[in-house]
Amino acid sequence: MVDLNDIALFVQVVRSGSFAEAARRLGVPPNTVSRRVQSLEAQLGSRLLQRSTRKLTLTNAGQSLHDRCAGAVDGLWEAGQALIDGSLEPGGIVRVAAPADFFDFFAMEEMGKFMASHPRVRLDFVLSDRNVDLVAEQIDVAFRGGPLPDSGYIGRQLIKADTDGMVASPLYLANRGTPRTLQDLIKHDGVGFGHPSGLVTWRVAGPDGSEDEIRLACRFTGNTAQTLRKAAVAGLGIALLPAKLTRLDLQAGRLVPVLPLYQRTSHGLHALYPSRRHLSMAVSALITLVAEKLSAASLQSGGIVSRSA
């Protein structure tokens, strides 16, 4: 019969990234951790981890076991802590991956209120616009914009899909002229996410619903939507940005629409977490907070947008 303590230890090894770090956190010798994981593999008849001198990598069997058991291990730990503490209060470390400009949209004060309401919770934010490996980087929840790859993660939509439109500053258009057709864009500078070619490629749908592909040369590129918005306002070129992000600039006249009949469907924002049956109370509470605040904010202003998060 499989020892459930060994499964819990295996989950800790995955989250720690090494036998040595798991041993340190658990207060046992590293060789004990290694021996018990080997024993678990023998009982299951499958290798769970690929060992190398630099890191541990989950096998397919290890990934499957972790995804199915990690939430249950968390639930058992929280149940024990609740009995010890005499409460059902969320606790523990929540490691969060979010877009680089997340806190340009989400008020840090809300995190302060959250931590005051849940004093046993610790938050660790990893801010980047790259797609992180949730298991390898020990991420409990990731907030991501853009299309979702088929990763096997569980996703919850926080902001619904909307439309993206082309915009530019009045000064830029006064200097370079206003495009009247998609072909006119060839003579203009784009502002977009960086690519080694120096070109940005957009697919937009026209008034008849058919899609066209546009390629613009970019003299300025960036890796966050806010950076591209500011570049467009500064007159550095034409940008394709979400309507929620540019609404206030359009109202104030800092930006104007370019070829408004051509648009692209955006992908909203999702919360992603490793495939598991149960989320920890702390992670669930944080997702609920972010969903409520961003949903309210998206009705008023910019929402949150990122290349990947």
Rank of each mutant, 00 (worst) to 15 (best):
V2Q: 02
L4M: 00
L4W: 01
A8Y: 00
G17R: 04
A20V: 07
R24P: 00
G27N: 08
P29A: 14
T32E: 07
S34H: 14
S34I: 02
R35N: 14
V37G: 01
V37N: 01
L40F: 04
E41Q: 15
Q43V: 07
Q43C: 03
G45E: 08
S46C: 02
L49N: 02
R51C: 02
K55E: 14
L56W: 03
T59E: 04
G62L: 07
L65Q: 08
V73Y: 00
D74V: 11
G75R: 11
G75Y: 03
E78V: 03
E78W: 00
G80F: 10
Q81S: 02
Q81T: 00
D85V: 00
G86I: 09
G86W: 11
S87A: 06
E89W: 01
P90K: 06
G91D: 03
V94G: 13
R95D: 06
R95Y: 06
V96Q: 12
V96S: 08
A97C: 12
A97K: 10
A107D: 15
A107Q: 13
M111L: 15
K113G: 03
K113H: 13
A116K: 12
H118W: 06
R120H: 11
F125Q: 03
V132D: 07
D133A: 13
D133E: 09
D133T: 07
E137G: 07
V141N: 13
F143Q: 01
P147H: 12
G152N: 10
I154Y: 02
I154C: 14
I154W: 01
T163V: 12
T163R: 14
D164T: 09
V167P: 06
P170E: 07
N175P: 00
R176E: 15
T181M: 11
T181H: 15
L185H: 08
L185Q: 09
D189Y: 12
G190W: 14
G192F: 12
P196H: 10
S197R: 01
V200Y: 01
T201G: 01
V204N: 05
R215K: 11
L216P: 03
L216V: 06
C218Q: 09
C218A: 06
R219G: 10
T224L: 00
A225I: 09
Q226S: 04
L228T: 04
R229N: 03
K230D: 14
K230Q: 14
A231T: 03
A232D: 02
V233H: 08
I238Q: 01
P242V: 02
P242D: 14
L245T: 11
L245F: 04
T246G: 00
T246V: 15
L248C: 07
L248P: 01
L250W: 05
A252K: 08
L255V: 09
L255F: 08
L255Y: 01
V256Q: 12
L259N: 08
R264D: 09
S266Q: 07
H267G: 05
H267N: 13
L269E: 13
H270D: 12
L272I: 07
R277C: 05
S280I: 01
S280Q: 01
S284V: 00
L286D: 05
L286S: 10
E292V: 10
L294S: 11
S295T: 14
A297Q: 15
S298G: 07
G303C: 10
G303L: 06
I304F: 11
I304Y: 11
V305Y: 13
